[in-house]
């Protein structure tokens, strides 16, 4: 369904706004004493899960286009940035509300606990992607931009590993996320074969300027 350029642009902004609703909602619940038990952990966990969901959505754009012909490219930058913001909020919550800026404890955690080291590496890799998500960087970096942004695959793997290693028993919930991300990553080496078998040769777009 073709959208007018103005509506298209508006739909991207709407995505940014809607994407931040879970964080705002969780923060409001926590700040007003409505999160039960361990509210800081609940909020931290909510932010981490949404970060994973946005990473998944970002990585799903390509296979959805390959397989179902759905073109969501114009939303990919917003989804990736939302993932970055959620990871950043997740880490900030851990740092400020959970550890109360006890930097010695934070540094020790990052250095000594593998799941936190892996999570931190994921955040560190997201920074250059977020910084180069603007149109100017895309033009400026050219082909190198695509190469750089393949880091998203490693980040998604790090994110789900961080999640799975953070729990005492890897349960059904973690396995679902592991399976989804594994499938999305496995699609990348498979897609040239899949796309070759499709009748009409596809116009290949690796970079979209939304």
């Amino acid at each position: 369904m073709p959208l007018s350029p103005r509506l298209r642009k508006a739909s991207v902004w709407a995505l940014y706004a809607i994407g931040l609703v879970p964080a705002a909602w969780g923060f409001w619940l926590g700040a007003t004493g409505r999160l039960p038990g361990n509210p800081v952990k609940e909020f931290e966990h909510l932010l981490g899960l949404w970060a994973l969901r946005f990473l998944i959505a970002t990585l799903a754009i390509t296979p959805l286009r390959d397989i179902f012909g759905l073109n969501g490219l114009r939303y990919r930058r917003a989804l990736g940035l939302l993932a970055f913001w959620y990871v950043l909020m997740h880490f900030t919550t851990y740092m400020v509300l959970d550890q109360f800026l006890n930097f010695a404890a934070i540094v020790e955690d990052i250095a000594k606990r593998p799941f936190i080291t892996i999570g931190m590496a994921g955040l560190a890799m997201l920074v250059p992607l977020a910084l180069t998500s603007n149109s100017w960087s895309i033009r400026r970096l050219g082909a190198r931009w695509g190469k750089l942004h393949r880091l998203a695959y490693i980040i998604a793997a790090a994110g789900v590993l961080h999640y799975a290693l953070s729990v005492k028993v890897v349960g059904p919930e973690q396995w679902v996320y592991i399976a989804i991300i594994a499938l999305l990553l496995a699609w990348r080496p498979l897609r040239p074969y899949f796309n070759r078998r499709k009748r009409a040769p596809r116009h290949r777009v690796t970079i979209e300027r939304a």
Binding site: G33, N38, K41, L97, D98, A105, D109, L165
Partner: peptide, 24 residues
């Protein structure tokens, strides 16, 4: 003695400190 995946040096007291209070 730390648990391999988290420090045992401090603890969060459930139900105290709320969202913004240091309850470690």
């Amino acid at each position: 003695v730390d648990h391999p995946r988290w420090s045992q040096a401090s603890e969060t007291r459930i139900g105290e400190g709320g969202f913004f209070g240091a309850n470690r």
